[in-house]
């Protein structure tokens, strides 16, 4: 493709491309974010209102938590398409378990709540474990395995509820986790911050994080260096499943019922979009969760801005699709530009 242009003009061509690319590479996310924020706040007075800001942060928290798990899986060279379905599954399982426990025990609500949360997290971790084991033991592509578990998990969620919301959770669960605020911000934001900080620590300072980078960067080198692959691969899927389940629980508390329609394909797509826009390389080995979290915030702001500007919600997927493709194309472009060793 590049050889189609004449050879002599190439060097001048390349440097201007390099400039463009440099600007885009370093500044894509902040620049886009600034444009969206400034533009929208000029057009809609409501945008920077306290309620809206809190709302954005809350929705961004959910996405950021899932995207952190997704990023970890992608850095290790995999893919997790099942996160959206896990959100739904965890929501249903949490609500069912909590309702059943509170009906059966009747005692202090905290016990029922704990049982429900444990069951919800457990369901997500179980799906993650299954994904991880299939990928690492059977050596099949993570993409297809999670495509399968996505369908299966969504099916189980629907089967458990018949598509009807599950009520009967203790009121204090909804009050304490879904609606409580601290210093004016909902609990979900603090949980997301904690998750992000923990993941930053895991990535930078722990063996697990280091090995995830190594496995994604060059699995063969990791093997001959004595890194055991299987537990770490499984670990990434378990973390991803667990974090998706956490979001399922938080969403359940927010809406007050267990619903098989939560999460879904949209959330899965957005988590991949956030990871990819946040600089996680689909080739594995590269990416930082803090940037991914910023990308999640950006996507949420974008969606919110489009809503406020009365842009048809049906057109919104088009923006998401284009931005995602653009981000990866830029990444690919910069990879080809840098010298190969």
């Amino acid at each position: 493709m590049s050889s189609a242009t004449t050879l002599s003009t190439r060097s001048g061509h390349a440097s201007s491309q390099e400039m463009l690319h440099l600007v885009l590479r370093i500044g894509l996310l902040p620049i886009l974010m600034a444009i969206v924020i400034i533009g929208t706040s000029l057009l809609s007075p409501y945008f920077l209102g306290w309620m809206n800001v809190v709302n954005i942060l809350r929705m961004a928290s959910f996405l950021a938590i899932i995207a952190c798990g997704q990023a970890l899986v992608i850095i290790a060279g995999g893919f997790d398409l099942s996160v959206g379905a896990v959100v739904a599954l965890a929501s249903v399982v949490t609500a069912k378990a909590m309702a059943a426990a509170s009906a059966a025990i009747g005692g202090p609500e905290i016990v029922a709540i704990a049982i429900g949360i444990a069951a919800g997290l457990g369901s997500g971790i179980a799906v993650g474990l299954f994904n991880g084991l299939c990928v690492s033991m059977l050596k099949v592509s993570g993409f297809v395995v999670t495509l399968g578990t996505m369908s299966a998990a969504a099916g189980i969620g629907l089967l458990l509820t018949n598509g009807i919301p599950v009520y009967g959770m203790p009121n204090s669960f909804v009050q304490a986790i879904g609606r409580s605020q601290f210093l004016g911000f909902p609990l979900a934001i603090y949980i997301a911050l904690a998750v992000i900080l923990a993941m930053v620590f895991v990535q930078r300072r722990t063996l697990f994080g280091r090995y995830v980078y190594a496995i994604g960067g060059n699995q063969e080198a990791a093997v001959v260096s004595g890194v055991s692959i299987r537990p770490h691969l499984v670990g990434t899927y378990v973390v991803s499943g667990g974090l998706a389940a956490l979001v399922g629980i938080l969403l359940t508390a927010l809406v007050g019922s267990g619903q098989a329609s939560l999460g879904g394909d949209a959330m899965m797509l957005q988590s991949i979009a956030a990871a990819v826009i946040g600089g996680v390389s689909l080739r594995g080995g590269i990416g930082r969760v803090e940037v991914v979290a910023v990308a999640a915030l950006f996507l949420t702001i974008l969606g919110n801005a489009l809503n406020l500007l009365h842009i048809d919600s049906r057109i919104q997927p088009i923006f998401l699709g284009l931005i995602m493709v653009l981000a990866v194309a830029l990444d690919e472009f910069s990879r080809r530009r840098t010298a190969r060793v």
């Binding site: 063996l207 280091r210 980078y213 190594a214 994604g216 960067g217 060059n218 063969e220 080198a221 990791a222 001959v224 260096s225 004595g226 890194v227 080995g285 590269i286 060793v341």
Partner: peptide, 17 residues
């Protein structure tokens, strides 16, 4: 047996950090 996306130091200790 080096991982290209890691630093020299990270590679030196890979597998026995």
């Amino acid at each position: 047996s080096l991982v290209p996306s890691l630093t020299v130091e990270e590679n030196l200790f890979l597998g026995r950090e």
